[in-house]
Design a protein around this nucleic acid. Sequence first.
DNA 1: CTATAAACCTGCTGGC
DNA 2: TGCCAGCAGGTTTATA
Length: 294
Amino acid sequence: MPELPEVEHVARQLRADLVGRRIVRASVFWPRSVSGMTPDAFEQALGGRLVKEVGRRGKYLLVTLDNGQVLVVHRRMSGNLIFADAQDGALYVRVAFALDDGRYLLYSDPRKFGRLMLVPSENLADIFTHLGPEPLDEAFTPAVLAKRLAGGKRSIKATLLDQSVIAGVGNIYADEALYAAQIHPLRPADSLDADEINRLHAAIQSVLEKGIEHGGTTFGRYRDAYNEAGGNFDHLVVYQKTGQPCPRCGTPIERITVAQRGTHYCPHCQRLPEETSSPSPYPARRGAAGETFR
DNA sequence: CTATAAACCTGCTGGC
DNA sequence: TGCCAGCAGGTTTATA
């Protein structure tokens, strides 16, 4: 479920509302939601801890505690962290944290794929060795992206989903970024020219920033810390929009499978070299999508 | 390296 | 209405 924007949105909410709170008690209801230690040890280690700060790395949420330990949360496909007034204040609660103000922070996860772990802050770097750069950092420049894509034989879509190439991009924002940059998802990563890499770099940052701005993308079960859906779905152009007209040219959005993932794109605006000359029955409709032109 | 499939899990949707 | 196939925001591991 959550990609970088969804994790970042919740991280900001927790930074404002969880920092300074004390975890009175932790309760694990699904043992496999905790990794790296027994549920008992996890509950013992968290009980009584004060929350010092909240951060994010890629799709990982980081809650730093007053004993130098960091609660690391990866929500995978269906996990949510939700404030509630009761321990059973949400469905599918796998772990509950009772807070010192009477509320609960609930880890809800219907599919049980997500994982919580407790890591000493000095060991944090060790568990993130597989992660590539943060796409919204200033250090992430077009040159960095170019270097990361160089020599890559895989499709650009599969490459963007690889967390060791860029941290935090998932299926929604990969499709949206490739659409915005007008690059076909099956293009080999090392076949992009400098202009395409520049466009892709700008597109990645822009779709992620827009996602954060709108509180993340909800088309299924993603909810933020206050159990609210994100508003970004209405701002998506291709993801889960199969059959709907491309706002740029009117061609219906198509869905294919790339790297075992549903992949959405405009066959007219995002073409493979072999089909650059194939005509589209849909005439360009400049200005049709709210673009300004005179 | 790359590519593919399977595994981990449950729920929802669409077609018949 | 009911059942079944297919699909879902992710990652890891095994196999070719």
